[in-house]
């Protein structure tokens, strides 16, 4: 297990390293472009030359990259050219707000999709199953910006219950309802489908038949025998959903003008704010790599055939 974890960790580090190189390559390979972006369209050539020299851009690319990487690892993420603020100071509050959004979305979608998926997968082909399956196809077919439009049309334009965009500088509950709903709507359908498939597969396993032949009741079969094995896949998938969620977060935050990580990245990209884009990209990749790692570890922990085999008395 430790060996497995060590290998996974090394892989994750290698991926992060490759990602950092890619990000730097894309954004800063052309030093002159960087100077234009930082100093603005109307800066003069001498100004740019001076800036490049001052900031060490006349060194070879690989040296610049290594220096940037070193600074990044140390926590020096540069200064936003648009906001004139250190990036490392700007990011945490934005991440927190996005974290709240994503956390609430998970809180809604996980229980909902487990219940729906289990109900549907328990007995394949029933009317409940078909209704749930169809509903989840529909919700996963509506992209976030469209469900944001539809839900806003209903709750903001028509019923007038909720605000259509964030306006308060702080945090307000009524402002996160719609963003959370939009995020959860899409992911719930997807996760419910995974849960359903996993549940349906488990229900066809011989050991479920054994339980039936022992005289176990349907409730006992579902809760004692099926659930534990059926949830391994969906729990692993929740982790892998995080990249989707992060993409969705950008759209949803932009739509509802929610001042989180997504809007920050979006605005940074519109402003050509190189340092900010780099930091945002690196942070989002870090989140994904960590969740993938967690997903792998979780899978080994949840799968009895892997996790328990390493016990000393495990020799079969």
């Amino acid at each position: 297990m430790t060996r497995y974890a060590a290998i996974k960790l090394a892989e994750a580090l290698a991926v992060m390293l490759a990602v950092s190189f890619l990000v730097y390559l894309v954004l800063e390979a052309n030093a002159r472009d960087v100077a234009v972006k930082v100093l603005g369209q109307f800066s003069t050539e001498p100004q740019r030359d001076l800036w490049l020299a001052e900031n060490g851009y006349n060194q070879p690319f690989i040296v610049r990259y290594l220096r940037w990487l070193w600074n990044f690892v140390r926590g020096d993420w540069g200064v936003s050219s648009h906001y004139r603020e250190p990036v490392a100071v700007m990011l945490p509050p934005r991440l927190l707000r996005t974290g709240i959004l994503a956390g609430l979305a998970l809180l809604v979608m996980v229980p909902a999709s487990f219940v729906l998926g289990i109900l549907a997968g328990m007995r394949e082909g029933t009317r409940t199953d078909r209704a749930i399956s169809f509903a989840s196809v529909v919700t996963t077919s509506v992209p976030e910006f469209a469900s944001a439009v539809f839900l806003s049309a209903i709750f903001v334009f028509w019923l007038g219950w909720l605000p259509g965009a964030s306006t308060t500088p702080g945090f307000a509950w009524e402002e996160v309802v719609l963003p959370v709903l939009v995020l959860a709507l899409y992911a719930t359908g997807y996760l419910a489908r995974i849960t359903r498939a996993s549940m349906a597969e488990v229900m066809m396993q011989p050991y479920v038949r054994t339980a039936l032949m022992k005289g176990a009741s349907p409730a006992r079969i579902v809760f004692r025998h099926a659930l534990r094995n059926a949830l391994v896949a969906p729990i692993t998938v929740i982790m892998l959903q995080i990249p989707w969620l992060l993409s969705g977060v950008i759209v949803v935050e932009v739509y509802f003008a929610y001042k989180g990580f997504g809007t920050l990245l979006y605005e940074a990209s519109l402003n050509g704010d190189v340092a900010l884009i780099e930091a945002c990209a690196m942070v989002s990749v870090l989140v994904i790599v960590v969740t993938q790692l967690a997903s792998d570890v979780l899978y080994t922990l949840l799968n009895p055939r892997i996790s328990f085999a390493r016990r000393p008395d495990g020799a079969a």
């Binding site: 396993q205 011989p206 050991y207 038949r209 054994t210 339980a211 004692r224 025998h225 534990r228 094995n229 009895p304 055939r305």
Partner: peptide, 10 residues
């Protein structure tokens, strides 16, 4: 299938 007839998690 004797092995598959037993619940792997119990």
């Amino acid at each position: 299938e004797p092995m598959a007839s037993l619940n792997p998690a119990i």
